[in-house]
């Protein structure tokens, strides 16, 4: 399977990564090489083999479904990128800000 410029453009949008126009062509070549190389897996007979879901041969314990953390909004927002709005302000802050989503 070989990828072209338009495939890369589509995948890049799915991954939400802006790729400059001039980088699409070389990237298509690099990705095609990698995909071509991993395709050697088609030689392996895997009929009836279950896909691996866990590398460890054990049952993991579950923790109790209870609140074990919280009440730390200021910590959670400490690295937020919009410094205009003070976190923890009862009226304005305490939120992440993003570009307008709903028209």
């Amino acid at each position: 399977m070989s990828l072209d410029k338009n495939d890369v453009k589509k995948i890049a949008f799915l991954a939400r990564i802006r790729v400059p126009e001039e980088a699409l062509e070389p990237l298509a070549g690099e990705l095609s090489n990698i995909i071509g190389w991993v395709e050697q897996l088609s030689e392996v007979e895997t009929e009836g083999v279950a896909p691996m879901t866990s590398v460890a041969d054990m049952t993991w314990p579950r923790r109790a479904d209870t609140v074990s953390d919280g009440d730390c909004a200021a910590d959670v927002l400490a690295n937020a990128t919009d410094p205009e709005i003070p976190s923890g302000d009862a009226n304005v802050g305490g939120f992440y800000t993003v570009p307008k989503v709903v028209e």
Partner: peptide, 11 residues
């Protein structure tokens, strides 16, 4: 899924 099947064989 193919890779995860191969992974089972490796293990």
């Amino acid at each position: 899924i193919k890779a995860q099947r191969v992974r089972t064989l490796i293990a």
